[in-house]
Amino acid sequence: MKQHHGMTSIVKNTARLVSGFIAVFGLYVALTGHLAPGGGFAGGVILAASGVLIVLAFGRRFSAKVITDRAVHIADAAGAGVFLLVALLGFLAGAFFANFIPTGEPHHLKSGGAIPISNLAIFVKVGAGLLGAFMALSAFRLTSKESKT
């Protein structure tokens, strides 16, 4: 890695240390979505934020190798697909989107039936989608016809 890709090594090392924790925090927010404020979307945004940090610190060239377009697309589609699947599995319990897993005791992590699964699916979908959108936007170069010279 040449120095002119991304920011200084201080930023890179900090980002390397911190981004994992940010991602785990996102997972936490998504996992406890059925108990406390938060949920799949908020968690996914936090996950994407950790990715954005990597992109900013290490530059697009490097991060595009780690976070490929293809992986983002697949994760995005898989998240949405699992969410739909959970909705369809509701037919097992009689109706579309019905909760087909025993709901368990309220206020415990293991409760809510299919809701945590949906939350996780949304977590993956939003994280991948938002990160993908950010990567795609950062790929643009703002060069116009006039300013090319």
Binding site: L137, F140, S144
Partner: peptide, 13 residues
Amino acid sequence: VAMAIRLYQKYGT
């Protein structure tokens, strides 16, 4: 935003 960037690429403004 994506469309705005594309517009800028095409029209330069």
